[in-house]
């Protein structure tokens, strides 16, 4: 008789329990993956192929997007800075926003949708067509043969992609700021070098990109490995990879930023 009260509550409770169970499951999967990842370094060509697949094939989208983001930063940043008569500080704004935030975050989001989804689809289809089971039958551990190389390939290529993204962004900002708008070339670079700190800005940005790489690669491999072995299940797993990667990247970014940059000036 109180069904209309208890039913939604029960539903919410079930969702929460399911989410916590999934978190435990993904951590257990991560541990198993780490234990099985010896082979991805002894048989290096497996990992190299995944770096090619996730890194090299993502180069074009990363470089073009980085360029565009940098050019937009150049336009918007100059418009705002020149109100305060400090258009020369454009280099600082472009470099800091790219190295600290936009480089790792946007590269991570692009990486999740370009490479993470592909990894999930590949593993999911292998599961749907029972290739993983077949490997297991032949005493080949699918975690070591399929999952671990894809994981480490993503972990290695994503920080490099983020660095390339930031570099292209700085170049794009330079193109708009110096070549098109006419900010002084010397002050663009010298102000940037004076204000961007290697330890605080570049290293922290790099740490961020490594953390995002771990998270996105783990989610992509896990969702593929965990999907329902049907066409619909694979498509849902791909959607979950992209959505959860994006949410995880943004949440982790907030946490990392609040540790790294809180209380600085």
């Amino acid at each position: 008789m109180m069904d209309w009260v208890t039913e939604p509550l029960r539903h919410i409770g079930a969702r929460i329990i399911n989410a916590i169970w999934r978190l435990g499951f993904i951590l257990r999967f991560f541990a198993a993956l780490l234990l099985a990842s010896g082979q991805s370094f002894t048989r290096l060509h497996l990992t190299l192929r995944e770096i090619w697949f996730t890194g090299v094939l993502s180069l074009s989208i990363i470089m073009v997007s980085g360029m565009f983001i940098g050019m937009v930063l150049g336009l918007q940043g100059y418009e705002i800075l020149q109100r305060f008569g400090s258009g020369d500080a454009l280099g600082i704004m472009v470099a800091l926003s790219l190295a600290r935030e936009l480089g790792p975050v946007v590269a991570g989001l692009l990486f999740a949708s370009r490479a993470g989804s592909a990894v999930t689809a590949e593993i999911g289809l292998m599961k749907a067509t029972e290739q993983l089971q077949a490997m297991d039958m032949m005493a080949v551990n699918p975690l070591a043969r399929v999952a671990a190389p894809r994981f480490w390939g993503g972990v290695i290529s994503m920080p490099l992609l983020a660095a390339i993204f930031s570099t292209m962004g700085v170049f794009g900002g330079w193109l708009i700021g110096v070549v098109v708008i006419g900010v002084d070339h010397g002050s663009f670079w010298s102000q940037m070098q004076a204000s961007v700190d290697f330890r605080i800005d570049i290293v922290n940005g790099f740490i961020k990109s490594v953390v995002f790489a771990l998270a996105v690669s783990l989610i992509a491999v896990f969702e593929g490995y965990d999907c329902h072995p049907t066409a619909e299940g694979v498509s849902r797993a791909i959607t979950r990879t992209v959505v959860q990667s994006a949410l995880t990247i943004l949440a982790l970014d907030f946490i990392l930023t609040s540790f790294m940059f809180r209380g600085l000036s």
Binding site: L48, V56, A99, A194
Partner: peptide
């Protein structure tokens, strides 16, 4: 396998060059 290795090598060189650019040209070590 050889072309893949070549491309991965180019990618690694690009990435490391980008890291060097960020640490030497954008900031100052």
């Amino acid at each position: 396998r050889k072309t893949i290795d070549l491309w991965v090598g180019i990618f690694a060189v690009l990435g490391i060059a980008a890291i060097f650019f960020l640490s030497l040209r954008v900031s100052t070590v």
